[in-house]
Design a protein around this nucleic acid. Structure first.
Lengths: 146, 146
DNA sequence: CTCAGTGCAAAGGATTTGCATGCCG
DNA sequence: CGGCATGCAAATCCTTTGCACTGAG
């Protein structure tokens, strides 16, 4: 799935299910996200000179998220971040720097995932909650801010 | 720490460090949060007829957070949620319903915490990231929405 | 008195939407 | 042609701030 062609094809298929097209603007957005190994903020996308209007960036990211091609990542700071959907890039967690706000990816750790499955069962038993996915953020200080 | 008197005393101490007082409005906010076993949204607080102006609610929650008495909880939906600080209520994770947005608490599980410590070491080794805390959300469907 | 705290109204800022136009199928 | 997609600008909506007033110490 690392190859650009595969990404485009997958995105196109998923968009088509919603009767939407893989337009050039959407391709550009996917390329910006694919070029980053961490979630990207919307200001960063706008600054990367995609040629897209601000409203188009917002609108297209919503569409791409609905299509399951990208994930929206929410942290405590003021803007939303986006990255390619986890099923395209592999399951991972996030390292959130409490100083500068940057978010890095951390590939999942097998032992941790096993423990998380236990927690999912626990939630089911104790709260009747059917967990379908999880989100783990480690908050601390990144190497740049240390 | 379950008793209201203790909560007030602790809150007052922590506020005093910032040269702030435990005013009646702040007491009301703490009571609203203490009465809930899950994070509460600001609209919910406003609807609970605290008698506080909207701006005071926002302002006081910021102060209480700075004092370390409450935690701000961010999810994917549009508003912020608050709950008593973890050191007052015990470490826990969140169950976020993807249908209705409600957030429930789930007390931490020992085996999971152990695995998380491993992940923290992993982040340190691989990314030079010094994690100080973590945030785990299980996303799924709550018992009401099922 | 002094200064934190409060209410009200206005401002701020990220995100969303209305509308007319452009473009792919 | 028909409908999705886009740009621009205006509107939204949660949240923050300015300002004058109140109140505790």
């Amino acid at each position: 799935m690392a190859r650009t062609a595969d990404l485009h094809q997958t995105a196109e298929q998923r968009l088509r299910r919603l009767n939407q097209r893989l337009t050039s603007g959407r391709v550009v957005l996917l390329e910006v996200l694919a070029a980053s190994d961490r979630p990207v903020t919307i200001p960063e996308i706008l600054e990367s000179r995609t040629g897209l209007a601000q409203s188009s960036v917002y609108r297209n990211l919503v569409v791409l998220e609905e299509a399951g091609v990208v994930d929206r990542v929410v942290t405590r700071d003021e803007f939303a971040r986006y990255e390619l959907a986890e099923d395209l890039t592999g399951h991972h967690h996030h390292l959130v720097c409490s100083q500068c706000g940057v978010v890095q990816d951390l590939p999942a750790h097998p032992a941790l995932e096993t423990a998380l499955r236990t927690a999912v069962g626990d939630a089911r038993r104790r709260k009747g909650f059917r967990a379908e996915e999880h989100r783990l953020d480690l908050i601390g200080v990144c190497s740049d801010c240390a």
